[in-house]
Design a protein around this nucleic acid. Structure first.
Length: 424
RNA sequence: GUGGACGUAGCUCAGCUGGUAGAGCCCCGGAUUGUGAUUCCGGCCGUCGUGGGUUCGAACCCCAUCGUUCACCCCA
């Protein structure tokens, strides 16, 4: 035997047993999106590296050390998308989709970041993203949050997930606040830990988000972002909160919520859970009014969120633990090559007449006894058994595998009618 | 990138202060001449992650390496 090639680190396989949960999550999300009249958009997994540098920010960890970047055969630098917003914005600009137009869009797919894997974090991960273009008013911020709230409600997360919200203000007020914060923190450099001293230069707002309990007091007394908002941003934020109150959506204002990506303005929010360990953010997003222009489009207000599918599935697993795999309705047993031919024909007419029916044919032979064992293990409700005797007189045996009724034998012509009655 | 924990059969795991591996599940066959979740009997299954070192002798001790995992960083 030659050596086994393993999957690439952090690129996880999703096995059939888990796929049913994934499908449940994906279907639920898509139903909600459909009910809100959002349209799906699809764009490539690979983009020019420059796109991410310009949108996410040059000095972020994502761009500096987490991107899967390679040189294409024509010497061009390309990157596996580390997030969805940049590619989506590029697409809608390139195709004129937001020229004086409102768009409500969604997408899902794989994303790639070269990070150390841990619970709820893989190098290839999957996200469902929503992006909205062309609406500056806070009603749409509220709709976006309502949309996410509806998804989590339908998934049964209501008591296990909480909404945190904040406003970063305009780029100008944010820059002003940054200076105030740096001034404050510089006065207390002695209380900063190593990470925070580094972040003082790279991303000072992130220091507010520090998990180090030794710095809790310092952070608590730091000047608040919300206090230095410009009027327009403050009104926008208040407007959003009013809508959320009217919609009865519970939220917590977290003045330390800053988000990592450079492009956010005004509204930012996160749905967090304490049931998943360290990676508790299941969904996060916000407004990015400057990004479209920054990527060469006409100035267009925009907002969106990313919803982590691994984390959503993980949460569903910890809460319900159930596998949603579909068992067959019928396990079809034939005891010889000859009867198998007839069985195939019968299964074929059954599927034509009853398109929803799930029939699992026993292939690979085996004694009736073993085939029934497999039938039982498959979880099928019924076994259809076609042996030499039945084939000879054109009958077939129907055996209920889940109840202790005696098995029935009836003419093959009645098979469709018989099963359509049983499986309603 | 940093730190901790862990790598023994397909899966879950046992294996004492070093004496060259074991259980359950799964799978296969039989008890049952065409009938399945029970029962009983039998069988299959291992470079003990990999490489080196110590030792008469290593799954066990030491070093390295790879992998997994949890946390930090960062983020969905």
């Amino acid at each position: 035997m030659s050596s086994i090639i393993q999957a690439v680190r952090g690129m996880n396989d999703i096995l059939p047993e888990e796929v049913s949960l994934w499908q449940h999550v994906e279907n639920t999300i898509q139903e909600v999106l459909k009910s809100f009249c959002y349209d799906e958009i699809r764009f490539p997994i690979v983009e020019k590296t420059e796109l991410f540098k310009r949108s996410i920010g040059e000095v972020t960890d994502i761009v500096e050390k987490e991107m899967y970047t390679f040189i294409d055969r024509n010497e061009e630098s390309l990157t596996l998308r580390p997030e969805g917003t940049a590619g989506c914005v590029r697409t809608v600009i390139e195709h004129g989709l937001i020229h004086n137009q409102i768009q409500r869009l969604w997408y899902k797919g794989p994303f790639f970041r070269h990070e150390r894997p841990q619970k709820g974090r893989t190098r290839q991960f999957h996200q469902c993203g929503v992006e909205i273009f062309g609406i500056p008013t806070p009603d749409i911020d509220a709709e976006l949050i309502l949309l996410s709230a509806t998804i989590f409600e339908r998934l049964g997360f209501k008591d296990h997930i909480a909404l945190q919200i904040n406003s970063l203000g305009s780029p100008a007020s944010r820059a002003k606040y940054k200076e105030t914060l740096i001034a404050y923190l510089t006065k207390h450099t002695d209380q900063l830990d190593e990470d925070s001293k580094r972040r003082l230069n790279t991303n000072p707002l992130r220091i507010l988000d520090s998990k180090n309990p030794a710095m809790a007091d310092l952070i608590h007394h730091a000047p608040k972002l919300t206090e230095s908002l410009d009027d327009e941003s403050r009104l926008h934020f208040e407007g959003l909160l009013n809508y959320l109150n009217a919609l009865n959506i519970k939220y917590e204002i977290n003045p330390c919520l800053v988000r990592g990506l450079d492009y956010y303005t005004k509204t930012v929010f996160e749905w967090v859970t304490t049931d998943l360990g360290a990676q508790g953010t299941v969904c996060a997003g916000g407004r990015y009014d400057g990004l479209v222009e920054q990527l060469g489009g006409k100035p267009t207000p925009a907002l969106g969120f990313g919803l982590g599918l691994e984390r959503t599935v993980l949460l569903l697993q910890t809460l319900h633990q159930k596998s949603l795999a579909l068992a067959p309705d019928i396990y079809f047993i034939a005891d010889s090559e000859k009867t198998l031919e007839t069985a195939f024909a019968l299964s074929n007419s059954l599927r034509k007449a009853l398109p929803e029916i799930r029939i699992l044919m026993n292939c690979g032979g085996g004694a009736i006894k073993n085939q029934l064992k497999k039938a039982d293990k498959s979880g099928a409700r019924y076994a259809l058994i076609l042996g030499e005797q039945e084939a000879a007189n054109q009958s077939i045996v129907l055996k209920n595998l889940r109840e202790n009724n005696p098995q029935e034998i009836f003419p093959q012509q009645q098979i469709i009618e018989k099963l359509s009655g049983l499986l309603n």
